[in-house]
């Protein structure tokens, strides 16, 4: 259904990933790939291991076994910051935005650009932040006339766009999104879906967790279903149905 390349070299490859918490095996022998311009949905019931998987990929957890390859090179991340530096950005449900700051200030939070006033006094370069924010948000087809407004002024879908924009600005190649549409109304959900399509068109890889099959079918290329920590199945969206996915999720 989408014209993105499906047969390129994988951006991200996970081989036989496992994660134990004491005696509990939250994830067992999980393998998957994400190619450039590809959207992979992770589905599964609560406790199926979706969150464990993305946390192992994004450096929050250290996997107990298995390997992660980024553009063919084996990697391991001690912290989420290391994963981010390598271009894997996770966007959690709470978005992690400072509501009282502008879009630009949020994009640059923790890495603020400075300029020198009269050649001596270092000052925040607000103009650079605003310009970068405007350009980045335009990439996502998000146009806003007041770049100095705090992000609390924006709606849920727009704030999602800001969080995605931050990842895009810092050149994230793989975006992991945890339930990006869960807290939104229907029109806002549609906007987030279109944002994901933008990312796809830019050749980035997207992994997104969702409970909403409609969203999954609207935007994904493939779906990976987890059940009790193991892969219950993987399907191309164009070759499966809601019913089949639900069966994979609940088992039987």
């Amino acid at each position: 259904m989408n014209s993105a390349p499906q047969n390129g070299a994988p951006l991200l490859e996970v081989r036989n990933l496992s994660k134990n918490f004491g005696a509990v095996q939250a994830l067992r022998d999980m393998s998957m790939v994400v190619r450039p311009g590809e959207v992979v949905a992770l589905a599964g019931d609560n406790g199926a291991g979706k969150t464990t998987l993305i946390k192992a990929i994004s450096g929050v957890y250290q996997p107990s076994g298995g390997e992660i390859f980024l553009r063919g090179q084996q990697v391991s991340f001690a912290t989420p910051q290391e994963a981010r530096d390598k271009g894997i950005e996770t966007i959690y449900q709470d978005l992690a935005l400072a509501d009282n700051l502008s879009i630009g200030a949020n994009i640059f939070l923790g890495r603020e650009p400075m300029k020198r006033f009269l050649g001596i006094l270092p000052m925040l370069d607000r103009k650079k932040m605003a310009d970068a924010a405007r350009e980045t948000m335009a990439l996502l087809d998000f146009h806003v006339n007041r770049m100095d407004a705090p992000v609390s002024n924006f709606s849920g879908g727009q704030r999602q766009a800001v969080a995605i924009g931050r990842a895009v600005y810092w050149d994230a190649q793989i975006l992991i999104m945890d339930e990006p549409t869960a807290a939104l109304g229907v029109p806002e959900q549609r906007k987030v879906i279109s944002l994901i399509k933008q990312l796809k068109a830019q050749g980035r890889g997207v992994i997104f967790i969702s409970h909403n099959l409609q969203d999954i079918f609207a935007v994904s290329d493939r779906i990976v279903v987890l059940r009790r920590g193991v892969q219950a199945g993987e399907r191309k969206i164009s070759e499966t149905t809601h019913d089949e996915v639900v069966k994979l999720m609940v088992g039987g």
């Binding site: 989420p80 910051q81 709470d94 978005l95 992690a96 935005l97 400072a98 509501d99 009282n100 700051l101 200030a105 939070l109 923790g110 890495r111 603020e112 400075m114 006094l121 270092p122 000052m123 925040l124």
Partner: peptide, 28 residues
Amino acid sequence: HYLLSQTKFGQHNYAIGANPQAARRAGI
């Protein structure tokens, strides 16, 4: 005033006050 409005220290101060979680994830 300069310290609060024009420096990273001031900017981080606002961010921590609004959302410490976001500030930490941003590497502050």
